[in-house]
Design a protein around this nucleic acid. Structure first.
Length: 556
RNA sequence: GCGCCCGUAGCUCAGGGGAUAGAGCGCUGGCCUCCGGAGCCAGGUGCGCAGGUUCGAUUCCUGCCGGGCGCGCCA
C-alpha cells in the first residue's frame, strides 16, 4: 500500500467516526453511514482529496448538505497530516494535505524498487487467466494478438496485485475441426506429391498447411501415400499440430507471452472427464433427450434456449467439452477463473456460467472478458482480411512490421469493450507521433541523466527532498504516488488499458519536469533531491512498462 | 425478431454517480549558451435523440436511432 492509500484510508475512517459521533449526539439525523467516496478531485483547486459524504447524508437527515459538512467537520479528527479543510460547492469536503506526504513517496519507491506498485490484494489466491487458445489449425491473427496482449498484461497485473497467477492456453486438438484439418492436410500432402485430389470444400485453405506438408515431405517423403487414409490423417495431423503449436509458442514468446500450462482438449476425452461431467449433470436432472440428442436445460440458468451436449451421432459438442474443461479449472483450486474471448463468442458466456451453476460452482468466480474486434488500417484504409482464402495478417507479421513494443502498447491502449482500429502506419512511426516511443524516450532520457552523474546516486534518506518545490516536481511526485492505486484498480476491474494511459501521463509529467527543471544543477542540495526524484520516476516507469510487456530501453 | 458491445472534438479514443468533460493524431504559431528537440508551450470545437431515477447523470435505468458481433447436433 502506498503513502496515498494509507492517508486515504485514515481519513476515510476518521470521517466515518465523525459521522457516527455526530449521529449519536443527535446532530445529524440519519441511519447507517452509507459507503461514500474519498477521491483525488479533478480540479487541483479542490484540494488533494474530496468526499461526498455530506451530500449522501443529506437526504436521510433532511438537512442541507453544506450544513452537514460543517457538523461533520466539528467532529472530524483527521490528524496532523491535513493542512486545511473546506466545505465547497454543493457540499463537498475538500482536504488539503500537508505537502510532507509527497516527500515520503520517494523513499518508499526507492526502497521497494521492483515491487513498487505491488500489493497483497489477492493474498496469494490462485487465479487463472486463459487467453488466446487459438485454433491450432491456423495461424495467430489480429484477434489472437489482441487477446495475447490483453491476457498477458492482465496476468501481470493480477500477479502484481498479489495473486498466484497461472497463464493457460487451451489447445483445441480434438473434435470436428481436427477432422477437417486432417482432410485438408491429406489433400495438400497428396497434391504436393502429384496426386490429383480435390481440396475439401470446408477445408482450411491457407498457405500455412501447404508449408506444413512440405516440411513433412522433406522428412518422410511419400511414405504415407499408400497407408490406410485414417491412419494417414492421424499421422499428418499429429505432425502438423506439433509444428503449428511450436510455432505459436515461439511467436507468443517473442511477443512476451509465456504460458504456464498448455492444456490439451484431447485429455478431457481420454480421462473420461467429459463423460463424468455429463453423468453428473444427468444425475442432477439437468439433461434430457430429444430428437436423438442429449440436451442441457441451460434455459433454466438464464440462457436463451437449451443446448445440445451430445449429438445424435453420439459425439459431444464443443460446449460439453468446455463444461468439463471449466469444471476441471475449478477442481484445480482456482479461486478466480478469467477467460479472454473474442466478441464472436459472447453468446457462449451465459450458458457456460449456467453450467457452472448447475455443477454447484459460483458463476461469479468465472469472469469472461469479451474483447471487440480489431480492424487494421494502412494508408488510411482498412486492410481487408479474407476468410475464404485464409489470407490474413499474422501476429508474426505484425511484430515484424511495427515491433513488439508498439504492437503490445497499441492493443493495450484501448478498453476491451471498444472496437480497435489499429493504425499500422502510426505504430511503425519511430517518432513523436507514436505514443510508445514518447514513453520510452522519457525512460531513455532519465537513464541518460543518471549516466551523466559522476558521483553515486544519492539515497532518498540522505537528500533534502523538501528542496523539491516546483509545481512540475510536485505534480510528478503525485503521479508517481498513484501507481499502487492504479494497479489495484486495474486488477479489480480487469482493465489493463488504465496502465497504458498511466504510463503516458507519467511520461508527459516527466518531460514537462525535464523542460522546467534542470536536474544536474550547481546547487548540490537541489541536485541530490532531483536525482532522487528522477530515479523514483525511472523505477515507476520501468515497473509500469514491465506490466505492459513493453521494453524500457536505456538508449534509443 | 432476440441478445451482447459501441455511439464523447475533424479522426482514433480516455473518462471510478460529483464541481469548469480530457489525451493523441491532424492544423496554426512560438521555444535550442546548458542534463538526449523522439522534447516543451500556446491556440477550439464535443457527451446520438427522448424520457426516468438522483441533491447531482457523459456515467445508472427505459425507449428510439445509428454501427459492430452473435443467435448451428460449428468451434
Amino acid at each position: 500500500m502506498g503513502v496515498l492509500e494509507r492517508l486515504k484510508s485514515q481519513i476515510y475512517q476518521a470521517l466515518t467516526r465523525a459521522a457516527q459521533e455526530a449521529r449519536e449526539e443527535g446532530r445529524i439525523a440519519c441511519g447507517q453511514i452509507p459507503p461514500f467516496t474519498l477521491e483525488v478531485p479533478r480540479e487541483k483547486a479542490h484540494g488533494d482529496l474530496a468526499t461526498n459524504l455530506a451530500m449522501l447524508l443529506s437526504r436521510a437527515a433532511g438537512q442541507p448538505p453544506r450544513l452537514i459538512a460543517q457538523v461533520l467537520l466539528e467532529y472530524f479528527r483527521g490528524g496532523n497530516r491535513i493542512a486545511r479543510v473546506e466545505v465547497a460547492g454543493p457540499g463537498f469536503i475538500n482536504f488539503f494535505l500537508d505537502p510532507s506526504w509527497l516527500y515520503e513517496v520517494l523513499p518508499e519507491v526507492e526502497a521497494q524498487d521492483e515491487s513498487y506498485g505491488c500489493s497483497s490484494l489477492g493474498q496469494g489466491q490462485k487465479v487463472q487467466v486463459e487467453f488466446v487458445s487459438a485454433n491450432p489449425t491456423g495461424l495467430l491473427h489480429m484477434g489472437n494478438a489482441r487477446g495475447a496482449a490483453l491476457g498477458d498484461t492482465l496476468a501481470r497485473i493480477l500477479a502484481a496485485a498479489g495473486y498466484d497467477v497461472t497463464r493457460e492456453f487451451y489447445i483445441n486438438d480434438a473434435g470436428n475441426q481436427i477432422e477437417t484439418f486432417g482432410h485438408s492436410l491429406e489433400a495438400r500432402y497428396l497434391q504436393l506429391l502429384g496426386h490429383d485430389v480435390p481440396f475439401p470444400e470446408d477445408g482450411y485453405p491457407g498457405q500455412d498447411l501447404i508449408d506444413n506438408m512440405k516440411s513433412l515431405i522433406a522428412e518422410v517423403g511419400d511414405k504415407y501415400v499408400a497407408i490406410d487414409p485414417r491412419l494417414r490423417r492421424e499421422r499428418l495431423v499429429k505432425y502438423a499440430l506439433k509444428e503449428k503449436l511450436a510455432r505459436m509458442e515461439r511467436d507468443l514468446t517473442d511477443f512476451g507471452v509465456v504460458y504456464d500450462v498448455w492444456f490439451s482438449e484431447q485429455t478431457l476425452h481420454d480421462s473420461g472427464a467429459v463423460e463424468n461431467v455429463l453423468r453428473e449433470l444427468q444425475a442432477k436432472g439437468y439433461l434430457y433427450e430429444d430428437e436423438g440428442a442429449l440436451w442441457f436445460r441451460s434455459a433454466l440458468f438464464g440462457d436463451e434456449k437449451d443446448e445440445v451436449l451430445v449429438r445424435g451421432n453420439g459425439t459431444p459438442t464443443y460446449f460439453a467439452v468446455d463444461i468439463a474443461y471449466h469444471q476441471n479449472k475449478f477442481q484445480r483450486g482456482f479461486k478466480r477463473v478469467v477467460n479472454v474471448w473474442g466478441a464472436d463468442h459472447h453468446g457462449h458466456v451465459p450458458r457456460l456460467k449456467g453450467a457452472m451453476r448447475a455443477l454447484g460452482f459460483d458463476p461469479d468466480r468465472l469472469e469472461v472478458i469479451i474483447m471487440q474486434l480489431v480492424r487494421l488500417f494502412k494508408g488510411g484504409a482498412p486492410v481487408r482480411m479474407s476468410k475464404r482464402t485464409g489470407e490474413y495478417i499474422t501476429l508474426r507479421e505484425l511484430m515484424e512490421e511495427v515491433g513488439r513494443d508498439a504492437a503490445r502498447y497499441f492493443f493495450l491502449l484501448r478498453s476491451a469493450d471498444s472496437h480497435l482500429d489499429f493504425d499500422l502506419d502510426l505504430a511503425r512511426e519511430q517518432s513523436s507521433e507514436n505514443p510508445v516511443y514518447y514513453i520510452q524516450y522519457a525512460y531513455a532520457r532519465i537513464c541518460s541523466i543518471l549516466r551523466n552523474t559522476e558521483a553515486p546516486l544519492p539515497r532518498a534518506q540522505e537528500a533534502v527532498l523538501e528542496a523539491l518545490q516546483d509545481p512540475a516536481e510536485l505534480a510528478l511526485i503525485r503521479k508517481i504516488a498513484d501507481l499502487p492505486g492504479e494497479i489495484l484498480f486495474a486488477a479489480t476491474s480487469l482493465e489493463p488499458h488504465r496502465l497504458a494511459h498511466y504510463a503516458y501521463e507519467l511520461a508527459t509529467l516527466f518531460h514537462g519536469f525535464y523542460t522546467t527543471c534542470r536536474v544536474l544543477t550547481e546547487d548540490p542540495v537541489l541536485r541530490a533531491a532531483r536525482l532522487v526524484l528522477v530515479n523514483a520516476c525511472r523505477i515507476t516507469l520501468r515497473n509500469t512498462l514491465g506490466l505492459l510487456g513493453v521494453s524500457a530501453p536505456e538508449r534509443m
